[in-house]
């Protein structure tokens, strides 16, 4: 029973990390109907950013994560300005393909500059610490990321649902022309949404180097899992993405522990296929 609880808890913590990565993607998808294929690379950039800050100036990832969020906000906004803006109104796949090109570009620049070596920050405030709660071992860095994920998802959700800016974002998502007629600067909304999406993944990436090694391919799997979380949750629904991420974390942990480690992603992607066969627009989609 203790093992079962431990596996479940690890799965939930991992699920919260996926939710944190998926939140930005979900926001962008919901508002602009764009899949940002470079999302995992945004995560990687933030991880490198935080790693180098920690390595050179000994800044702890907890502080770097804020800087990482700000940095990737700028990266996201620039991506929107230079690439995404020009694909809007073209075929649905063009933004996906352009961001795929961008992800190749970023990944290989990092490969070229930083080499494919795995890098992990030593002696961080959180790294390597665990505590025991009623027989379940809880790793501190994962727990902190999980709590940050919950807080951030709550903030983003509130922002979209309850503030004037959020209403403007929702209006833009529903009908761009009508929103413009109401005096909303949709161009600025898009820029902001892309930046915010980047900032969410930037915060995640900033925290990660305290327990996950950085390397140029680190974003690839996170991208795929985030796509699956967002699509499974349903078109731009943040609660849906959270639920899907937790499900995916649990399925991954249980399949990895009780079947075989290699089957965890088979189970995760299989779950997606089963869910969209039953609900072609995701769990919370309409």
């Amino acid at each position: 029973m203790a093992t079962f609880l431990q596996v479940a808890f690890d799965g939930l913590l991992n699920g919260l990390l996926y939710a944190l990565v998926a939140a930005g993607l979900s926001l962008i998808w919901g508002v602009m109907d764009v899949i940002n294929f470079a999302h995992g690379e945004f995560l990687m950039i933030a991880m490198y950013f935080s790693y180098w800050l920690g390595f050179i100036w000994k800044i702890d990832p907890i502080i770097s994560s804020v800087a990482g969020g700000a940095f990737v906000f700028i990266v996201g906004a620039l991506t929107y300005r230079l690439v995404i803006r020009r694909t809007i109104g073209k075929s649905a796949m063009s933004a996906l393909l352009a961001t795929f090109g961008l992800s190749m570009l970023i990944k290989n620049i990092c490969l070229n500059r930083f080499s494919p070596n795995f890098r992990l920050l030593q002696d961080t405030l959180l790294g390597g610490k665990t505590f025991n709660l009623a027989g379940i071992i809880i790793p501190v860095p994962q727990l902190v990321i999980g709590l940050v994920a919950l807080a951030l998802l709550f903030v983003v959700y509130r922002l979209v649902k309850k503030t004037r800016l959020g209403w403007a974002i929702q209006a833009t998502a529903m009908d761009k022309e009508a929103a413009e007629l109401m005096g909303i600067n949709t161009e600025r909304i898009y820029l902001l949404v892309f930046g915010l999406g980047g900032a969410c993944v930037g915060i995640a990436g900033g925290l990660l180097p305290s327990y996950l090694a950085v390397h140029p391919e680190v974003g690839a799997l996170f991208s795929l899992i985030a796509f699956v979380c967002v699509a499974m949750g349903g078109f731009g629904s943040i609660p849906g993405a959270l639920l899907a991420s937790l499900l995916i974390g649990l399925v991954e942990a249980f399949a990895g522990f009780y079947i075989a480690p290699v089957f965890k992603y088979v189970a995760v992607f299989g779950l997606y296929l089963v869910v969209v066969m039953v609900r072609p627009r995701g769990l919370f989609g309409w």
Binding site: V83, L97, A98, F100, G101, L102, S103, M104, L105, I106, K107, N108, I109, L111, N112, R113, P116
Partner: peptide, 14 residues
């Protein structure tokens, strides 16, 4: 260094 061909490829795609 590695990846130069893919950097060019990525840029070309964008």
């Amino acid at each position: 260094g590695g990846g130069v061909d893919l950097i060019i490829f990525g840029l070309l795609i964008v």
